[in-house]
Design a protein around this nucleic acid. Structure first.
Lengths: 117, 117
DNA sequence: CAGAATCCAACAAGATACTG
DNA sequence: CAGTATCTTGTTGGATTCTG
């Protein structure tokens, strides 16, 4: 049993980046799941994410784009059309979220029990 | 390619609970990792988590306890001593975080590249 | 259609000081 | 030792309205 080292915050490391990236962005995981079956337009995303305002949805998408999980494509003719789709990196992240999701589903009862007492 | 269903928020489901639980609590993932090698006292946890104030650390531990990931044990004699340790559920969650961590480490360069451009 | 602008509320987190 | 108690700050997120 090794001792705890001092200060885990000296630099960003893999164990902290993802929780910090996915964590603060309340809707990121859900947005990614909405893109799992292929490219979607902004207005399409607004259907399942009806409770998310356009501003917040845009923020979330932009952040995901910045981090390389999502690719944004815009065409102006004949009509304006913007689609979002997962990159390879995004699909990899989606797979990880699925792992987490499956684990949660398996332990769902335990989680609910803990909350009650 | 199936269509997106309306409103993903009708009820809490496994795909949302964990991001919502681990997400909002900024330090939860780090706290769990600090407990990976066995029970720790409050003051021991404060060493690697030096940048977290006692108030916030307490909040985090209490929330993790409430959700069944951590068990708190208090003894008063001969001296006061409070230890925190992972439950089975907590160890399971730790394993999931490791999966996520390993994936992040593998794609570390991609993530950094994306942030730069 | 796909957002941008503005303003505001909520809550998490930090600083500091104190206690059973 | 293991926290509490206050107070303050800062960062999302939300509501609403408007636009190229």
């Amino acid at each position: 049993m090794e001792a705890l080292r001092a200060d885990m915050f000296e630099e960003i490391c893999p164990s902290t980046l993802l929780p910090f990236r996915i964590g603060p962005d309340k809707w990121a995981a859900l947005v990614i799941r909405c893109l799992e079956d292929g490219p979607r337009r902004f207005s399409e995303l607004r259907v399942p994410l009806a409770r998310v305002t356009p501003k917040v949805l845009t923020q979330s998408l932009r952040a995901l784009e910045r981090d390389g999980f999502v690719r944004r494509t815009e065409v102006t003719a004949p009509v304006r059309r913007v689609t979002y789709e997962l990159t390879d990196l995004g699909r990899g992240l989606l797979a990880q979220l699925y792992v987490l999701c499956n684990w949660t589903a398996e332990h769902w009862d335990d989680l609910l029990d803990a909350r009650e007492s």
